[in-house]
Design a protein around this nucleic acid. Structure first.
Lengths: 232, 232
DNA sequence: GATAAGATGTGAAGATCTTCACATTTCAAA
DNA sequence: TTTGAAATGTGAAGATCTTCACATCTTATC
């Protein structure tokens, strides 16, 4: 039996879709938006995958999350008078994305209290996710960063298998390292150590976590609900 | 001339105060709430100072922000069904704090669209602050963490002087280190290096920043508005 | 299946930070 | 003014990560 562990969202997607100004066909490798650009739209992903990241001055990349179907991105530009994107959004998989004008969604939120409420709930969850993620990165060193990332990925893209949880996302060591603020080499060494200990295994670029409990214990994870512990 | 650089808030404080269930006289050293406790209230600080932090399993403390007059804390428990505090709130200075029941403020937000809008704006700003802070911590090493913290403190508690900006907050090396995820000794060494280079000076436990530009350039700060770059 | 490009694996050197240990300084209360 | 207690300052050892260099493995493509 194959079962996705991804939690469902609370925002009424169809309601948001009605506000869309246009939909965009996106192609792998394209940027949906890049940091510094003037921000006028919010995006709702209909299909495909988008990676949100911050590029540092010296060219290193800190990946923050990967958005999939029904996720929202570009949200950090709402309600602000300095409307520039702080992050970049790279298309990982071809798909279709709805664009909603900032003014339109702000006006609608103002008028529609149910939508406002749902949106606040979403922001609140999203905030918790980000905060707990960074907490792991800062408090538990690079190992903590990797373990935290793996745990989140099992929540977002994990598929239950008989011998563990398969993270159904092809990732190179470099890409995984970008999520942890870690070099490719360090990521590789840490992954190999986990392999040797039987905690994980890797086949065709996809990781299976055999001992999630170990990862959680190492970083003092409180077993929070998956809603607050994922990478999207 | 002495001028505070602290930005004003947009939420209508008086409106929130009317919702308060009770007010609490707080004493230095007390905890307003501690992580893991059942969360039923949101707090509005009338006077005094409150430090929000996360305690790691091995006893280290990661300080996230210091709230002063008119700041809100406990906000991460709204709109959630797992209502436990994720962080602890330690009273740094005696004061008075208004407590608002979670249900009351949720109901009011649902009914009052202007309040909802203001609250969303607050959440959005707050999110940006947190995200940019952590970005600095993760991307720029311990030095970046310290520089970022100092910059934020000038925005939150800075007073313009003829020779620079005085951070009007008594802080030990340990306390400052807690904001950066850094040991007391490392913090001390980095501060002394900055002193030697004339970037800062310290008198009676309070830091004056003489060369803010240097700190900003070192971490690739985009000179964002103070609203998004502060420690409260 | 040959080949080249990309990804992975790994030793060694060096940078960065922490930890431990202890000396010195500062500060508030007796 | 004395006197602890807390805070600061600093060397040295060790842990952790990065960087560089290069070998090996994998995969897509002709």
């Amino acid at each position: 039996m194959v079962q996705s562990m991804k939690p469902t969202h609370s925002i009424e997607i169809k309601e948001l879709l009605q506000l869309a100004d246009r939909t965009i066909k996106t192609t792998k490798g394209q940027y949906l938006f890049q940091e510094g650009e003037h921000a006028e739209e919010l995006y709702l992903i209909i299909s495909g995958k988008v990676q949100i990241s911050k590029i540092s001055k010296d060219g290193r990349e800190l990946a923050l999350r990967i958005c999939g179907d029904n996720d929202i991105c570009g949200e950090l530009t709402l309600f602000t008078h300095a409307p520039r994107y702080l992050l970049s959004a790279l298309i990982l998989e071809d798909g279709e994305i709805a664009a909603i004008k900032k003014e339109v969604i702000e006006r609608e939120i103002f008028q529609n209290s149910a939508l406002a409420f749902e949106f606040m709930k979403w922001m609140s969850d999203h905030f918790r996710k980000t905060q707990t993620k960074f907490r792991d990165l800062v408090l538990n060193g690079k190992k903590g960063a990797l373990f935290s990332t793996l745990i989140r990925m099992t929540n977002s893209y994990g598929i239950k298998k008989s011998d563990g949880i398969l993270i159904d996302l092809p990732l190179t060591n470099q890409e995984l390292g970008n999520f942890c603020g870690t070099s490719r080499e360090s990521t590789n060494r840490m992954l190999n150590e986990l392999k040797r200990e039987g905690i994980i295994s890797i086949k065709k670029g996809k990781i299976t976590v055999h001992n999630l409990k170990f990862l959680k214990e190492e970083i003092g994870c409180e077993n929070c609900p998956a809603t607050y512990c994922s990478i999207e």
